[in-house]
Nucleic acid binder design. Structure first.
Length: 369
RNA sequence: UGCUAAGACGCAGGAGC
């Protein structure tokens, strides 16, 4: 049983659910670990419903679940966004008196967040006898996701730093809370703590700091942290590029993009959106076309965010024909791309076409905002 | 009483006005 359970786990980690099933089905006896491993596997490959069914099946077979099993079940509920299933699992957990388990509580908070019930999440968080870094991170993240930024920042300020073992994740989310309100002062205090605890050059924490400073418009601070991150990936580069655009330094943003590529860092879709913003802000049509070519080369022309940015860029650079060429070929147009297109028409004095597109938008039941 | 097999939670960058 131990060997088979390990095999199941290995197949799941390698992404082969079929092989895992093969082993599971051939097992003469299965224990809680083998069932739990399978439930996790189903959740990981997006089969939340099947995962719940399997856990039901497990109970029917008289196999007693443990806390690991319920972590898997809660993950399944979260992936389905099913508050009803989640509450049912919560009930079972209470009746088994597992509410003192920190993993269980953390998963409950995360599940309730993902099922859209921040108050259920709060109910769990508030009653926890002890909380760790994950508990705080998960709760603050939940508040941020449902746009309660102020509450998130207030909660961040209640973190018991002296008794908590911090990790990169908690710093990342606290900085995100500061960023969401452009609370630079609070952010700088967190930064001091980060330096004191030696997390500044951590990729995750450093990137969060760069992004915070970039969004708050203090590019000197962003630079300072950026240069201290030893192994940059594309994320902090993108934050820097967007920060420069936001601070009206589009030219520098384009230079930085150039520099990034010279360093052998591959841009991704996020980066291109930033770079297109830079071109738009500079109205540099030539540069924009050049970027467009690079996007085509990668086959990303019709990713929603990219197409909208292309439409916006061409519109702002006054090349309405090229804007239209991209817009008309978009697989799915939305309010944002349509608005960008309308603005383009307006900018070049084609008000009639703008109105025509507006009418067509409504015919296609696109809700204007 | 202790040790001994297998499965566990959260976290960084993006489009129009």
């Amino acid at each position: 049983v131990f060997v088979a359970s390990t095999l199941i786990n290995m197949y799941i980690k390698c992404g082969s659910m079929e092989d895992a099933w093969g082993v599971f089905n051939k097992m003469p006896t299965r224990n809680m670990v083998s069932w739990t491993a399978m439930i996790f596997g189903l959740v990981k490959c997006g089969q939340g419903q099947k995962a719940l069914e399997l856990s039901q099946h497990m109970l029917e077979q008289g196999v007693e679940p443990d806390t690991f099993t319920f972590v898997a079940v809660l993950n399944a509920c979260a992936s389905l966004g099913s508050l009803e299933e989640g509450r049912r699992a919560h009930e079972q957990i209470r009746s088994r008196e597992w509410m003192s388990d920190i993993y269980i509580c953390n998963c409950l908070i995360d599940m309730f967040n993902k099922c859209g019930s921040i108050e259920d999440a709060w109910g769990v968080f508030d009653k926890m006898p002890t909380r760790n870094a994950v508990s705080w991170t998960t709760m603050i993240m939940g508040l941020l996701k449902c746009r309660q930024e102020k509450r998130a920042l207030e909660l961040s300020q209640q973190i018991p730093w002296t008794t908590l073992e911090p990790d990169a994740g908690i710093f990342a989310v606290v900085l995100k809370a500061c960023t969401s309100l452009e609370a630079l002062e609070e952010g700088k205090q967190v930064h001091e703590r980060i330096i004191k605890l030696g997390f500044e050059s951590d990729l995750l924490v450093g990137s969060s700091l760069v992004d915070m400073y970039a969004k708050c418009g203090t590019m000197e601070d962003a630079w300072r942290v950026f240069s201290k991150i030893p192994k940059h990936n594309v994320i902090p580069w993108t934050s820097m590029i967007l920060g420069l655009v936001k601070s009206r330094q589009g030219k520098k943003a384009l230079e930085l993009f150039q520099h990034m590529q010279e360093q052998g860092v591959e841009p991704d879709a996020f980066t291109f959106v930033g770079v297109l913003n830079a071109c738009a802000s500079q109205t540099s049509l030539e540069e924009g076309r050049h970027i467009h070519e690079q996007i085509i080369k990668r086959g990303w022309e019709y990713e929603v965010f990219i197409s909208s940015s292309l439409v916006d860029m061409y519109g702002k650079c006054g090349s309405i024909e090229e804007a239209w060429r991209v817009f008309s070929k978009m697989p799915t147009q939305n309010v944002i791309s349509s608005t960008a297109m309308i603005m383009g028409f307006v900018k070049c004095g084609q008000g009639e076409k703008a109105l025509e597109l507006f009418r067509r938008m409504q015919l296609e039941e696109m809700e204007p905002d």
